[in-house]
Amino acid sequence: MNKYNFFKIKKYKKSIVIAFSKNNMTADDIYYDLNLLVDDINFDDNIWAVAFDFSKGFKIHNACDDRFVYLSLTELVMNIRKPTLCAINGQIINRAFEFILPMDYRICTQNSTFSMNQILDVNIQFDGATQLLPRIIGLNKAKEMIMFGVDINSEEAVNFGLINTITSEYKIMNLMIEKLLKIVDFSPLATQYTKEAINFGNETPTVQGMKMENDLSSILLSSNDRIQAINSFKNKKSHKNFKGK
């Protein structure tokens, strides 16, 4: 996986950790690489979960190339079918903030802060913040952050439901790897379908979503992973050896 210009990829069991080769990236730098990477992640049966390492800080500048100004990075992240995690450190603003919103599990350090001040620059968000942030932290808090450029610290971020856990700068990567290894112990088919059903549930009437949940569950009925896991349960054994088939 060294075909990327700006990403460094490390493998941990059935998961990968993606680090950016520089902290100040432009949107077009990221877009080229991420577009390729998302396809690789989705179609590689050996990748069951993905983590982004922003533990050295993370900033995204607007695209240099005009064609990329309005292209969505968050949409690319939303297209990742496998569970996504991120480790955050430092000041996360504007597009970098938007970038972390579609991720499934977010860990940050005590000195992380989050803000969106496009409105102060006579601009508005265009990469999903107005749609994603209210779903994550609730409408009132999202309006405060987006309409008034109010920034929040790590503790507030946990209280509002933006961040799962706070840890120190020294422990953040260990904690993220621990979470990654936990999720790759589960069946990858089950985690992908669960993620799909939860995200679908955000967009659809509940009864329709419940029927979709049933359909996904029926697809799983025929998987080897499920048959073997249930047989292990019947034999009173734990089952850790999922194959994703």
Partner: peptide
């Protein structure tokens, strides 16, 4: 853990009740 997904509406009803995270 058992290669299942919730089938009693969990993926839909939890979303309605608590924060996405």
């Amino acid at each position: 853990q058992w290669s299942l997904i919730p089938i009693s509406g969990g993926t839909q009803t939890f979303v309605n009740k608590i924060k996405d995270l």
